[in-house]
Design a protein around this nucleic acid. Structure first.
Lengths: 209, 209
DNA sequence: ACCAAAAGTCATCAATTGTTGACGTGGGCG
DNA sequence: CGCCCACGTCAACAATTGATGACTTTTGGT
């Protein structure tokens, strides 16, 4: 039966049945927002254009028309509002704390966007058509900036290690549904542990051993 | 066009065109082996029963007939030959070294089986029908045994963290195709770093800090 | 107010997918 | 040797998927 798509039930807030004003930019954004939410919760293959269109309250044809097909839509989602916020963090410790905070926050606040994008990347990493897009986006938008930020020997490798920790925790929490992060108090413990992990991953050289 | 399946090109060694002897057990095993290889390289949705049947050199109908459908086949693959080999490792350091070795070995030698199963789990973790199977298998066959092996406070959480490191490195290497592990010499460095990461993840309590 | 172009809708297509039933056929046991 | 049931094959089906071309409706400028 092929890929089973998500429930047709709208994930968005109760979409207005009022006839949408004809504005290409607004419609495009609506589609993009709906696609973002879909790709965040399901893999590339399991996101149907009809689901996205339904959430956005538009016809299926518009999706292909505006984004040139499913692949274009996915590409647009990954390219949507990408700004790295690790600007001023030159200190390795502060950077680690920042990453740990990103990994443990569950309410998709402001910065949740970056983590959400990481999750989107993760979800569709094993879909043949999406994998190439995902890999290049991950390398260009995440890995290389991080490697450039931290300097030193083997920056690329250390950055990869840190992202491995991030990816791993993300998988555990959001995909494997393992409740590593319990409520309240112990959550802080987990955050500290992740922080230590990231720090070790970023360490320039094996110091004491 | 739905999920694009892998190339019809056989992944197996040149399959014998000699008329297969009629033996249910042998055929079942052939299908299982072919399915293992397919699920190892593609996600649940992107593995077609026709691909598996083609690799095994049998008809498509036999797959559904023997395993009761695609879902049953996937379940059978995950349940195939699962033996944990962390038996005698009571020392946290030795365990970490073992896990790091598992994560860095690229030739699927003897123990590669365990890592391969982890990769199969990882690949299909985002497929609605496979996710439930994958999660329970991961919890029952990987997480809980590891948590039981290491003792102490919050064993479940520490085990999850260690597996997060394992999953993360696996993703980086096999899915994201990030070349964290270079040839020869530096590979050992990576192994040591992973070993340290696993050790930190398994640490019972924040010692100095 | 008109009219061209943009924005949106509808219907339909080709391609795959997993699954099932009816139909051959070969091999082991009496 | 002969039969019969398990083993295997073939063909077809229903369901979805992404995509596209023709058609309708609205918008905005003059």
């Amino acid at each position: 039966m092929g890929a089973i798509h998500g429930t047709a039930k709208s994930v968005t807030s109760p979409l207005d049945d009022r006839p949408r004003v004809r504005n290409a930019a607004v419609t495009r954004e609506a589609i993009l927002a709906a696609a973002w939410r879909r790709f965040l919760n399901e893999s590339y293959d399991n996101v149907g254009l009809r689901d996205v269109a339904g959430d956005a309250g538009v016809d299926v044809a518009l999706v292909s028309r505006y984004f040139g097909g499913k692949e274009g839509l996915f590409r647009a989602v990954l390219s949507h509002g990408k700004e790295e916020k690790f600007d001023g963090l030159t200190d390795a410790g502060a950077l680690a704390a920042r990453l740990a905070a990103m990994a443990t926050e569950q309410a998709p606040d402001e910065d949740g966007h970056n983590m959400e994008r990481l999750l989107i990347i993760l979800r569709s990493a094993s879909s043949p058509v999406a994998s190439s897009i995902v890999r290049s986006a991950f390398s260009a938008d995440v890995l290389e900036p991080l490697a450039a930020l931290i300097g030193g020997e083997g920056a690329q490798q250390r950055a990869s290690m840190a992202m491995a920790v991030m990816m791993g925790t993300a998988i555990m929490r959001s995909i494997m549904a393992v409740e590593t992060v319990c409520e309240g108090a112990c959550r802080h413990d987990v955050a500290r542990r992740i922080e230590r992990l990231v720090k070790v991953a970023l360490e320039e050289d094996k110091p004491s051993y």
